[in-house]
C-alpha cells in the first residue's frame, strides 16, 4: 500500500499544526464559535437539565419510582390520569409516571455515556493502530471494521437479549461493541493525514518513539473529531436502548427507562385513551437525542478549523 500523498493535505495539516502551539487560544476560539451557534447552545442547555435530573433524581422525583400507590381502601391506583399527587398520572401498576420519567433519565445517561466510553476506546485504539501502522494491519483492521458495520445491529441486539437475557449491562456491552467502527474510521483518517504532517516528521527526525508520537502528537490532534462523534454516539445509543426496551428486549421492568415506558403504548387502549403514559417519555427521548445532535453539530463547527477556514474563505470570496 503506498503512503498517501502529503500534497493537498499539507496546507490544512500545517494550519492544524500551528495552533497546537497555543492550545488555549484554539479552545478559546472554539468556545467562542460554539457560543454563537444558537441551536447548539439550546441543546447544551437541555442536556445540562437532563444531566441534572439524572443526578438529582432522588430529590427531584415526587415519589419512589417503584412504589405501587393504593387508595385508602387498598385498591391499586391503576391508569389514573394526571392529578395533583401524580402530575403525570399513574401507570398500570399504579406507579407514579413523573417519578419514573425522572429516574428513566439515569438509565439513558448511563447507557449513553457507557456506550460512548466503550466505543470511543475501542474505536480510537483500533483506528490509531490502523492509521499509524498502515499496510497489512490497516487492511485487516479496516475489513474487520467493515464487517462490524455491516452487522444488522437491531437483530444482533435482539438475539443477544434473548440468549443472554435482557439487562442494562447486556444492552450497554452489546451496543458498545457494535458502535465503535465510525470512530475507528475517523481516527484512522486523522492519523493517515497527520502522520505525514511536518510537525510529526519533525518529531520523528528528532528521534521520538512511535508511542510518543502517537500519544503526544497524533491523539491530541484527533480529539476534536472524536469528541464530535462521541456526542452523536451517545444519541445513537440512547435511541437504540429505547428501541430495544420498547420491543421488550432491552432493560427489563421494573427498572424505569423511557423505552420500556413506551412499551406500554403498544396497547391500543393506552395509545387512544391514556396519553399521559407515553407523551412524557416519548418527548424526553426526542428532546435528548435532538439536543445531542445539535450539540454535536455545534461542536463540529466549533472544533474543526477546516470548516472555519472554509467559512472565512467563502466570506473572503464573497467580499
Amino acid at each position: 500500500m503506498s503512503r498517501p500523498a502529503a500534497g493537498p493535505d499539507a496546507e490544512a495539516a500545517a494550519v492544524v499544526a500551528a495552533p497546537t502551539a497555543r492550545r488555549t487560544s484554539l479552545y478559546g476560539e472554539a468556545w467562542r464559535r460554539l457560543r454563537d451557534h444558537r441551536l447548539a447552545m439550546v441543546g447544551l442547555a437541555f442536556l445540562a437539565l437532563f444531566v441534572l435530573a439524572a443526578a438529582l433524581a432522588p430529590w427531584l422525583a415526587p415519589h419512589d419510582p417503584f412504589e405501587i400507590f393504593r387508595t385508602p381502601e387498598g385498591r391499586i391506583r391503576i391508569w389514573e390520569p394526571p392529578s395533583r399527587d401524580h402530575p403525570l398520572g399513574t401507570d398500570r401498576f399504579g406507579r407514579d409516571v413523573l417519578s419514573r420519567v425522572i429516574y428513566g433519565s439515569r438509565i439513558s445517561l448511563l447507557v449513553g455515556l457507557s456506550v460512548a466510553l466503550i466505543s470511543a476506546t475501542i474505536g480510537a485504539l483500533l483506528g490509531a493502530l490502523a492509521g499509524y501502522a498502515g499496510g497489512h494491519l490497516d487492511n485487516v483492521v479496516m475489513r474487520f471494521t467493515d464487517a462490524v458495520m455491516a452487522f444488522p445491529v437491531l437483530f444482533l441486539l435482539i438475539t443477544v437479549a434473548v440468549v443472554a437475557g435482557p439487562s442494562v449491562v447486556n444492552v450497554i456491552v452489546v451496543i458498545g461493541l457494535v458502535s465503535w467502527p465510525r470512530i475507528c474510521r475517523i481516527v484512522r483518517a486523522e492519523f493517515l493525514r497527520l502522520r505525514e504532517a511536518e510537525f510529526v516528521v519533525a518529531a520523528r527526525s528528532l528521534g521520538a518513539s512511535d508511542a510518543r508520537i502517537t500519544v503526544l502528537h497524533l491523539m491530541p490532534n484527533s480529539v476534536a473529531s472524536i469528541t464530535v462523534n462521541v456526542t452523536l454516539d451517545i444519541a445513537r445509543a440512547i435511541l437504540l436502548e429505547a428501541s430495544l426496551s420498547f420491543l421488550g428486549v432491552g432493560v427489563p421492568q421494573p427498572t424505569a427507562t423511557w423505552g420500556n415506558m413506551l412499551h406500554e403504548a403498544m396497547s391500543l387502549t393506552v395509545v387512544r385513551g391514556m396519553p399521559w403514559l407515553w407523551l412524557a417519555p416519548g418527548t424526553c427521548i426526542l428532546l435528548t437525542v435532538l439536543s445531542l445532535n445539535f450539540a454535536g453539530d455545534g461542536l463540529r463547527d466549533a472544533l474543526d478549523p477546516r470548516t472555519a477556514i472554509g467559512r472565512a474563505a467563502r466570506a473572503a470570496a464573497a467580499a
Partner: peptide, 20 residues
C-alpha cells in the same frame, strides 16, 4: 384494529384492551 374497522367479525381480546 381490523375488529375496530369492521374488517373482521370477532376475536379473542386481551383484558387490557377490553375498554377500547
Amino acid at each position: 384494529s381490523s375488529l375496530l374497522a369492521g374488517r373482521i367479525d370477532a376475536m379473542a381480546v386481551p383484558v387490557t384492551e377490553a375498554r377500547t
